[in-house]
């Protein structure tokens, strides 16, 4: 079963669904450095890595803060990563080095293969298990499920995930282990992680929409906690006019019609309750 998962979305890192780290800059390179320091890692080679490798490397390190890796032999953990743009960022930079600067950079050249990320993680951890990187048009839970199915005969644990960096960092890695009852390839794991990600994206989207609809000029999405009461003085402080605006928001963005403002009272308790309501209604 999936025992730990970690997600990096724009300026935030969540570990098992809870905020692990937030960066004051929404820039991948700055954030990677802050995260590296935050994790108190001493591994100079990190600074030479390209952004794809850094992402995989850091997420794996975060997972390791929660999982006791030592119970696995060095060839019992498999690595399976995927994304939809390979290492194109680095490819473009390398191209620039020989077309514009006329000096092809060897430091960049070594990262112009997408599977270098698994190499970096393996070197750091001295792992000798299976490893592979795939390029897919979009995240596909079924694909990871199939990979797990294939690998489970040869390996005891799986470090897998989606490493997307373009247009902004949207990556997650999960660690799956075999238990007495379940193999790590149960479909439930991936489905639940994609559900969590879906809900998280929905909440983020809702916050942006609420700020826009209600003209909350001085608020950022991060100022609105998922569970903060939207109405009343203890939370965001919305009122009955806002409730009507939220009904319009549901109609406009989600095609959900609430005909009775009384119904809204339950739905609009918090971002969490709104997201749950939208999710259930849209099913």
């Amino acid at each position: 079963m999936m025992t730990t998962w970690c997600r990096w979305k724009s300026d935030k890192v969540l570990l098992n669904g809870e905020l692990f780290f937030q960066c004051d800059k929404n820039n991948m390179e700055d954030m990677a450095l802050q995260l590296y320091r935050f994790l108190k890692i001493d591994y100079p080679k990190f600074h030479k890595m390209d952004s794809l490798s850094k992402t995989g490397f850091l997420l794996t390190e975060i997972i390791k803060t929660r999982v006791d890796i030592s119970r696995y032999a060095d060839d019992e953990i498999a690595l399976v990563f995927a994304n939809n743009h390979s290492c194109s960022e680095t490819d473009v930079k390398f191209e620039h080095s020989y077309l514009e600067d006329k000096t092809p950079s060897p430091a960049l050249f070594v990262y112009t293969l997408p599977n270098i990320v698994t190499g970096e993680i393996s070197i750091r951890n001295k792992w000798y298990g299976e490893s592979s990187v795939y390029i897919l048009p979009a995240f596909d839970a079924g694909f990871f499920e199939n990979q797990a199915e294939i690998l489970q005969a040869h390996t005891k644990a799986l470090m897998a995930g989606w490493l997307q960096l373009i247009p902004e960092t949207d990556a997650f890695i999960y660690f799956a282990e075999k238990t007495a009852e379940e193999s790590f390839s149960t479909k439930k794991n991936i489905t639940s992680i994609s559900f969590i990600i879906k809900m998280e994206n929905l909440k983020e989207e809702l916050k942006k929409q609420i700020i826009e609809q209600l003209n909350l000029e001085d608020k950022k999405p991060s100022d609105i906690a998922d569970d903060a009461p939207l109405f009343g003085d203890n939370g965001i402080g919305l009122d009955s006019i806002d409730a009507l605006e939220l009904i319009v928001l549901l109609d406009k963005h989600y095609h959900i019609k609430l005909s009775n403002p009384e119904e809204g009272k339950k739905v609009f308790q918090s971002i969490n309750s709104m997201a749950d309501y939208i999710n259930q209604t849209k099913k």
């Binding site: 609809q213 006019i241 009507l244 605006e245 009904i247 319009v248 109609d251």
Partner: peptide
């Protein structure tokens, strides 16, 4: 056919 935001009416 959509719902209208009431604030500007108010």
């Amino acid at each position: 056919g959509g719902m209208l935001p009431p604030t500007s009416f108010i």
